[in-house]
């Protein structure tokens, strides 16, 4: 997914305007000239400037479609694979706390390994093995409170 200069410029200008206008609602430090709004406003101006340059360059240059698909996206299944990966992380975010780290992580690893056409027995070993190793290292050695969910704590 590649934006043309006009498109990217337009998006940046819109974003800069939103940031700049919203920043004006930030309260000042009592009795001071420069408060919470100063810095975001400056960033918005800079971003807006970049957007304008890009937009102008796009208008002056040859006409391009607003969005072009880059080479890899034309490979069949490429967009789907990227989407599944993102959804796997989303699933982790939503499910890890209620269900627990071990089952959710093993499941999304299995999904991704199958997606990449890893043989099923390797998938099983790598999904379960990786999950258990991470659980051991992070929970027991590094004391990271990985979500337990409905799972009991593993015996380490």
């Amino acid at each position: 997914m590649r934006f043309s200069d006009r498109m990217l410029g337009g998006v940046l200008i819109a974003f800069a305007l939103a940031v700049g206008i919203y920043s004006q609602t930030f309260p000042d430090i009592p009795g001071q000239q420069y408060g919470a709004a100063a810095f975001p406003t400056a960033i918005a101006v800079a971003l807006g400037g970049c957007g304008l340059i890009l937009f102008a360059r796009g208008l002056l240059g040859p006409r391009e479609p607003l969005i072009t698909l880059t080479e890899w996206t034309r490979v069949p299944g490429a967009l789907l694979a990227a989407l599944v990966t993102i959804l796997a992380v989303v699933a982790y975010i939503l499910l890890a706390r209620p269900v627990g780290f071990v089952p959710v992580m093993a499941a999304i690893l299995a999904v991704l390994l199958v997606l990449l056409r890893v043989p099923w027995w390797q998938t099983a070993i790598f999904a379960v093995g990786t999950t258990l190793v991470i659980d051991f290292v992070f929970r027991s050695v590094l004391l990271v409170p990985l979500p337990l969910g409905i799972m009991p704590r593993l015996p380490w």
Binding site: T85, Y92, M105, L109, L113, L116, V144
Partner: peptide
């Protein structure tokens, strides 16, 4: 093989991000 490595890297990224804030917010 990268087909095996990439999902495992993602798993480490997820727990690493989790560990940085100790919450799902990091992920």
């Amino acid at each position: 093989p990268r087909a095996v490595l990439m999902p495992i890297i993602l798993a480490f990224c997820i727990v690493g991000a989790f560990a940085s804030t100790n919450s799902m917010y990091g992920v």
